[in-house]
Amino acid sequence: MTDSMLIYKIILCVIVFAVSLGAAAYMTWGERKLAAWLQDRVGPNRAGPLGLLQPIADGIKMIFKEEMIPTHSNRWLFILGPSFFMLCACMTGVVIPWGAGWQSGETLYPMQVTDINIGLLYLLSVVSIGVYGVMIGGWASNNKFALLGALRASSQMISYEVAMGMALIALVMMTGTLSLKEIVAQQDAGFANVVYQPLGFIIFLICAFAETNRAPFDLPECESELVGGYHTEYSSMKLGFYLFAEYINMFISSAIMASLYFGGYNFPFQHELGLDGNVLTAVQTAVFFGKILMFIFLFMWIRWTLPRFRYDQLMNLGWKVLLPLAIANIIITGFVMLFTGKLG
């Protein structure tokens, strides 16, 4: 790796971090606006035009609020919980291809921080260790409601991870690669993967909702039963980290769904436009962000439409519906591949 490439990668890494943090901040604004609109209200409109400075005001409020660490809590683990959750949320952004790449002279600067050949597995592993942030935080609070919330959150997350991984296996069988860059590039030639994997996409979508703890699967923060869920004892910016990481997770999972099933940065007839390489990359990145926004809208739309599941319904859906469906999807994919002779 050349020096210029290394510097470029570091800059890109910082940009990805900044973009996902900024996007998450403005998603809080978007969520409140959309919630208001869906309920015939106006939403935040005092801080700046259209309330656009609201996230900054919220951030300042969060930072300056009083910090409470319960006396009988485990101090280090109490701090480790939200930090770890935030870290895991930020880590996923590096394998997503945000665009084809910038051509500068001889070298092509890819718009992806790192293209590890097991990108999908990397995503799954980061998602699976994200549970620890919740569990450690809930246990360290030394509060039974926080602990119950943490147990609920973790059992929900590990249950839906299984179905999620199974849904991805069918996709991997079809594409024959674990690298996100490859998967996106393959969709340039043919249709988007959602055409071939509609069932897999729906399973993945539902699991993404459950993994990000979004409604209708927001049982971990079930106010009506568990006070506040795993973050009952948290205050100030530590609570902010938990809430903020949820939005980052939402942003990243929207990006993942867009690139796995909806062609990533590709859009129809992109090569017929006659655009020059770098201009095309810029347009592609814009299209990719458009797709991400679409998914974020879906996330929020569903949150403000559907009521929460009951806990047994949640577990039934995860284990008795989604998992068998995902396995059936794998088998169907396998048979189709066998009969169409696509088996390598």
């Binding site: 097991i118 597995l121 799954l124 592993s125 569990m135 147990l151 973790s154 590990i158």
Partner: peptide
């Protein structure tokens, strides 16, 4: 490496922690 993290750190140890906490 990835499978090690998914299986051991992400699944088995979560269950360990789960049981111990519960």
């Amino acid at each position: 490496a990835a499978v090690h993290i998914i299986v051991y750190a992400g699944a088995i140890m979560v269950l360990f922690l789960y049981v111990i906490m519960m």
